[in-house]
Write a protein that binds this DNA or RNA. Structure first.
Lengths: 182, 182
DNA sequence: CCTTGCATGTAAGAAGTTACATGATTGA
DNA sequence: TCAATCATGTAACTTCTTACATGCAAGG
């Protein structure tokens, strides 16, 4: 699975501009995929050259013009062949967890800061995802619901483990900062 | 955080060969970081050239020679500066979750296959991680324990959500394959 | 006036993977 | 005899990010 496959999939649902696609990544895909404009625009150009999508120039008043891309029959075939390919394993890259491995090499105050920071981020992301689910839930397909449930379950578990971990580390060693109240 | 930072960190704990470092990635880091030999060896060469590590040739009998790398004082300073840098956000790339988003564009039988497959993988990884924790737990630092607890919590949650999801989808639509018993 | 949103793109470079190339030893 | 383990490395390629470049309109 590359950016190409995902972009083609988005256009298989409905025609969109590069800007719209970026929006999709920020909303629907944020917790398990992302791509920047530096990927999106060159990919759209490439897909068009290959005949998998077509471009239409849409003039707007009061706003810049848009290039709306639509998938072709060839594009649909290509996307189906992605769906039939083997599933790639999940890849997680976590700076936070790498640092936990090296915890003994770092100042305990700093480690405490990392953990509190991670907890705060996780709590914020949990709220945000739960909010998305409430807003979009009724419009989601069953598998899209499953997807966001996985995301929410993951973060909820992470928040729990971090809270327990902070409490436990505090008893081992009085180095944890008090959690900040905002 | 790049491969460089992590490799330097591993050598900050104790001297190792490229081969040993790969082993570490497969054992300790598997669920949140990985690097191939194609990253490890060129990185070791670069770090040596920069004076952050030193190489020692170790002759072995019955086995190929090893290049054991040790961190220098300069290397330790560099690694500390990584630890003091801002934490990068977690990045997850999940082909499975991408496909769940496009579930409506795929054959329901195929979707059922994806989910059962993901469940089986998750269950296998859960067993493997729990096993690691049992084996290595007593030798782990408190923050390393926290790290593996996060990993286990994540997968456990994923298994739960997938199991519930399979049951729910089965009531919606009689397309789910019976789980295989191995 | 300043920021946000809308909107498209390029260029340089970082980072990493895959496949290739080599070769001895051990155990089944 | 065959596979796995030990062990190091290169080259070509893919993929993606960051920074740059541009510019209008609306709202506070």
């Amino acid at each position: 699975m590359t950016g190409q496959d995902v972009i083609l999939g988005i256009l298989a649902v409905e025609p969109k501009s590069g800007y719209d696609i970026k929006k999709k990544f920020e909303n629907l895909f944020s917790y398990f995929f992302d791509a920047s404009y530096g990927t999106i625009y060159p990919t759209l150009g490439k897909l068009e050259k290959e005949g998998l999508i077509t471009k239409e120039n849409v003039v707007q008043q009061g706003k810049p013009n848009k290039h709306i891309y639509s998938i072709t029959e060839q594009g649909r075939v290509k996307f189906q062949s992605y769906l039939e390919s083997d599933i790639q394993e999940n890849v997680l890259r976590s700076d936070f967890m790498v640092r936990l491995i090296f915890g003994e090499l770092a100042d305990p105050q700093m480690v405490a800061g990392w953990i509190n920071n991670a907890l705060q981020r996780s709590q914020a992301e949990l709220l945000s995802l739960e909010n998305d689910y409430e807003r979009m839930g009724p419009n989601m397909s069953p598998t899209q619901e499953l997807c966001i449930q996985i995301g929410i379950g993951n973060i909820r578990s992470q928040v729990q483990v971090l809270q327990d971990g902070i409490a436990r580390l505090r008893t081992i060693n009085n180095n944890m900062e008090a959690p900040s109240h905002e």
